[in-house]
Simulated scan of single mutants.
Amino acid sequence: MSVTLEQVGALLELIAPISFAEEWDNSGFNVNLHNTDISGIMICLDVLPETIEEAAEKGCNLIISHHPLLFRATKKIDSESYEGKCVQMLAERRISLYCAHTSMDSAPGGINTWLADQFALANRCYIQNGLVERFYEVAVHTPRGHAETVRRAMTSAGAGRLGEYAECTFNIDGKGTFRPEHDASPYIGQAGRLETADEIRISSICSENDLQKVLRAVRKVHPYEMPAISVLKTDEPQRINSGLGIVGDMPSPLPAGEVLDKLKAALQTDSVRVAGNLKKKIRRLGVCGGAAGDFAELARKKGAELFITGEIKHNEYAAQNDIILVEAGHFDTEKCFCRLYAQGLQKRLDDVNYNIAIYVTNLRRPYVNY
C-alpha cells in the first residue's frame, strides 16, 4: 500500500505539533514535494550534503531533521551556499524535508523531557510555558427526562475531564418557560401559548480543543428544536500543553559534581563547562537542550539551583546569580532527538499499518573538538 507525503505529515503532527513551535522558528516542511509516495524516511540532527546522499542511497525520499535548513529569511537560493546546495540536492533527488525544531523541544516526551528523565526529576514545570489550552463552561437546559442522555453525550464528547477525574458535571433543577411562535415546531407545548417545563441545567467544563465537539453532541441528542446553551470562557483551569525547558526536584540532594557525573554518563561525553560551586547540594535542577543560556534566570526563579543547557554566552555567565551554570554542548544535549523521533514515528506508523522503513543517520561528533 502506498503512503503519501501528506499522510505521513499528519502523523508527524501527532509527535510534535507545529503549534508547539516558537513564532521565530521554522519547524515544519522546509521542502515539500507534494503528491509523493514515501519510500523511506531518514532522521538526522542537521541537514548536510552527506546526509542527503545517504538518504538517497537508502531509497529515502523524506528527511526529518531537528534543526531547520531554512532558518532565517532567505532572499535567494545560491547553489554555492550551504543552504542553496542542500536545496538543490533535495530537489534533484526528489527528497522532501521536514524539520521538528522547537516543536520537539517543547513537546511532552521531547528533548527536554528526555533530559529531565535522566535525573528522574519530580514536581516538574516548564521554564517557559508554550501552548496554553483554555477551558470553557458549557451549560444546557434540558427536560428532566432527557437529562441523562444529554449529560452522557457531553461527557462522551470530552466535557467534564479535570485532572484525574472524568464525567464532572453540576446539575440544577428548575422551571423553564417559553412561548413557541407560530412557525415553531415545539417538542413541548403549543404555538402562541406560554409553557412551563421541569428542566435541569447541566453544566460542565471542557477544553478549547473539545468545545465544538461537545456542542455538536449536545445538539444531536437534545429534544428541543432550539436548545438553550451557554458557553463561558474561564480563567481557571487551564492546560499547559507544551513548554521550553524543565525545572524539577531531584530524587535526593546531590553535590553538583555528582550531578555532572550523571550528566556526562547520560550524554556519553567526557567534559562539560561549568561555573559555580561543585560541592553545593542540588535539590532542584533545570534543563534545556540547545542554546538556552538566556533561560538561566527564569530557571532560578522557579527554584533551580543548577541549570544545564547546550550553549551559554559570556554575558550570561557574567550575569550568574546564585545558580550553577553548566554548558554541555549543543550537539550533546540534542543528539537524543534522532532516537526519540524515530521511536515516536515508528509507533505512529505501526498504529495505522504503514510499512515504511525508518533510518537514523550516522551521527557525527560535534563540529568542534576540545
Rank of each mutant, 00 (worst) to 15 (best):
I282S: 03
G59D: 02
Y359R: 07
Q118K: 14
M250V: 09
R151M: 11
G158T: 01
D235C: 10
N35W: 04
S19R: 14
L363A: 11
L62W: 04
R219I: 05
E148P: 02
I356S: 08
T74L: 14
A16K: 02
R300V: 03
V218H: 06
A291P: 00
R365L: 13
V47Y: 02
Y165M: 09
D173S: 11
S242Y: 05
R72G: 10
N321P: 02
E53M: 12
H146A: 15
H182M: 15
N241V: 12
Y136T: 04
N30P: 02
L298M: 12
C44S: 13
A56N: 13
T102C: 03
E236C: 11
F170R: 10
L70V: 15
K75D: 09
G9P: 00
G163R: 10
A265D: 12
E22K: 08
E137N: 14
I77S: 04
D350A: 12
N209C: 10
V360F: 03
D270E: 14
G163W: 07
R93A: 11
K279C: 10
N353E: 11
I64E: 02
I312P: 00
S204H: 07
K313R: 13
A184F: 01
Y224K: 07
K301V: 07
F178D: 04
D351S: 12
R239K: 15
V140Q: 05
D332G: 00
S96V: 06
R179P: 06
Q346I: 03
F20L: 03
P237K: 07
V150C: 04
R124H: 06
L14R: 13
E23C: 09
S81T: 15
L306I: 10
Y359S: 03
A100F: 04
Y82S: 13
H182Q: 15
Y224W: 09
S79C: 09
G290Q: 07
T333E: 00
A184R: 05
K301T: 11
V214S: 06
L45Y: 01
A157L: 01
R93I: 05
E297R: 11
I356W: 05
V352Y: 07
G40V: 08
D261L: 13
G289A: 09
K175D: 14
E6G: 05
R72W: 08
L131W: 05
S230W: 00
Q346H: 12
N315H: 14
L285K: 01
L69E: 00
L340H: 01
Y354P: 05
W24A: 06
L260F: 01
G243Y: 01
E50H: 12
C125Q: 13
D198Y: 03
Q238M: 12
A147S: 14
A120H: 15
F135H: 15
E316L: 04
G145Q: 15
L263V: 02
I95T: 00
D173I: 00
D37G: 01
E164C: 12
M226D: 14
C60S: 11
C206S: 09
I38A: 08
G145Y: 10
C206Q: 08
A73K: 15
A357W: 03
F119C: 06
I52M: 04
V259E: 00
A116T: 05
D270Q: 15
Q212Y: 11
G290N: 08
T4P: 06
H66W: 00
E311W: 02
E50L: 11
I77V: 13
I323S: 00
G109I: 01
G329Y: 06
G40S: 09
P237A: 06
E54D: 11
